[in-house]
């Protein structure tokens, strides 16, 4: 049994085929990279897995259970948490309250707000944001908000974590830090699917990489295989370099 299995997934918007016959698997404990040019369908894939979009056809199986087209609040309850490419913070909440939503709902819901607050502080600490616990989300910088989203997703105790361009806009030093953090998260037992534009970051991070182009999988393999794959080079650098 695969941890996550996506089979013959299709999704179109009007005439546009955003995802076409997509197949892939993720095994427990992996960090899988999902890359591809702008508009190749990476975010759409995450939206389909988390129920934010309903596929036209195909199935998504998570830990042996068919989760295709479940209401979007159910994915997190089953252990799939995500971050958003464009951050979606609860702006008038404090950072701590933002994270508490993940802890109080999430995979192990609780009505005990005091305990939830304690554990949420631990999540904030994990992403290095504890000193901003009482700051309002709207007063945080964009980079801080990205970390906040990560803390919030972690507080939901996911089994599978989907990260949508978490590192976009970071400088090389910050990106390196983020990569270490993502590896630590994996080592704590969470399987991760990372969407990233920065090829360099994803090569250093991923155990395995899936490449999309126009909604289709054009390559899949180890990072060193991917960098030498002619089709990938063609897509990323244009035909001349292939």
């Amino acid at each position: 049994m695969h941890f996550l299995k996506v089979e013959r997934l299709c999704k179109s918007f009007g005439g546009l085929m955003a995802i076409h016959n997509l197949d892939f698997e993720i095994e427990e404990g992996e960090i899988v990279g999902l890359i591809g040019p702008n508009g190749s369908g990476k975010t759409t894939t995450l939206n389909l897995i988390t129920g934010f979009l309903k596929p036209d056809s195909g199935t998504i199986t998570f830990r042996g259970e068919d989760i295709t087209g479940l209401p979007r609040c159910r994915a997190c309850q089953k252990g799939i948490a995500r971050t958003f490419q464009l951050t979606k913070s609860f702006l008038n909440f404090t950072a701590l309250q933002n994270v508490m939503v993940g802890r109080v709902y999430g995979r192990e819901p609780t009505g005990n707000l005091r305990v939830a607050a304690e554990e949420s502080r631990a999540s904030l600490q994990r992403v290095g944001l504890l000193d901003k616990a009482e700051a309002l989300a709207k007063d945080l910088t964009l980079m801080e908000r990205k970390r906040l989203e990560l803390a919030r997703a972690l507080a939901a105790k996911p089994r599978l974590l989907l990260l949508d361009e978490l590192m976009a806009g970071l400088n090389p030093g910050e990106a390196e830090e983020a990569m270490q953090l993502i590896k630590q998260i994996r080592d704590s037992g969470i399987t991760i699917l990372v969407v990233e534009h920065i090829v360099k970051a994803i090569l250093g991070l991923s155990d395995r990489i899936i490449v999309l182009d126009y909604g289709e999988k054009i390559a899949e393999g180890l990072p060193e295989e991917i960098v030498h794959n002619p089709r990938v080079i063609e897509v990323y650098l244009g035909k001349a370099h292939a």
Binding site: C73, K88, S89, F90, F93, V101, Y105, T110
Partner: peptide, 20 residues
């Protein structure tokens, strides 16, 4: 808990749903 959920829905519905 329910109040926190209600306010989360007010602040950012999609994020709230992504957290369950």
């Amino acid at each position: 808990k329910l109040g926190l959920g209600m306010m989360a829905v007010r602040e950012e519905e999609e994020a709230a749903e992504s957290l369950g």
